[in-house]
């Protein structure tokens, strides 16, 4: 199976690789997946007083599509408000990266990671976590 150019680009030049201080109150961390499944994604957001995401970082253990999905997600997150970020759908990632059907779960993982990071931020700041539909892949 050949990878799309965009996957290869994100994979070879991943954006926003790194770690934010998860102890900080305005940093939300999402850790999803499991090593046994061959994919673990950690996505972090840093949020300012206006609920705008000022920074996003990721690290991913997974296939090229999973790495590209999380790299793309961090790009999209920056500058969005937390509520806007909640709207990111895995199918947007699939479309942008031209992922084939067997790689859809890699994008689902990225969506899960975003939502889980947002919820971590919300809980830290005394907000209710948003109920997520349990996504299975």
């Amino acid at each position: 199976m050949a990878y799309s150019e965009k996957v290869i680009d994100h994979y070879t030049h991943p954006r926003n690789v790194g770690t934010l201080d998860k102890a900080k109150k305005n940093v939300g961390t999402g850790l999803v997946g499991a090593p046994e499944c061959g994919d673990v994604m950690r996505l972090q957001i840093e949020v300012d007083d206006n609920h705008v995401i000022t920074d996003a970082k990721f690290k991913t253990f997974g296939c090229g599509s999973a790495i590209a999905s999380s790299s793309l997600a961090t790009e999209w997150l920056k500058g969005k408000t937390v509520d806007q970020a909640m709207e990111i759908d895995n199918m947007d990632i699939v479309e942008e990266l031209a992922l084939p059907p067997v790689k859809i779960h890699c994008s689902v993982l990225a969506e899960d990671a975003i939502k889980s990071a947002i919820n971590d931020y919300r809980v830290k700041n005394g907000l209710e976590p948003i109920q997520l539909e349990k996504s299975h892949h």
């Binding site: 991943p14 690789v17 770690t19 850790l31 999803v32 997946g33 499991a34 090593p35 046994e36 499944c37 673990v40 994604m41 950690r42 690290k59 991913t60 253990f61 790495i67 899960d112 889980s116 996504s135 299975h136 892949h137």
Partner: peptide
């Protein structure tokens, strides 16, 4: 490995088996 959250945890001495991974 620079991209891998697991590698980072390993380097920090975190036992990966102690983490409750999200089931999927």
């Amino acid at each position: 490995r620079e991209l891998s959250p697991l590698w980072e945890m390993f380097k920090e001495g975190i036992d990966l088996d102690s983490i409750e991974w999200a089931e999927h």
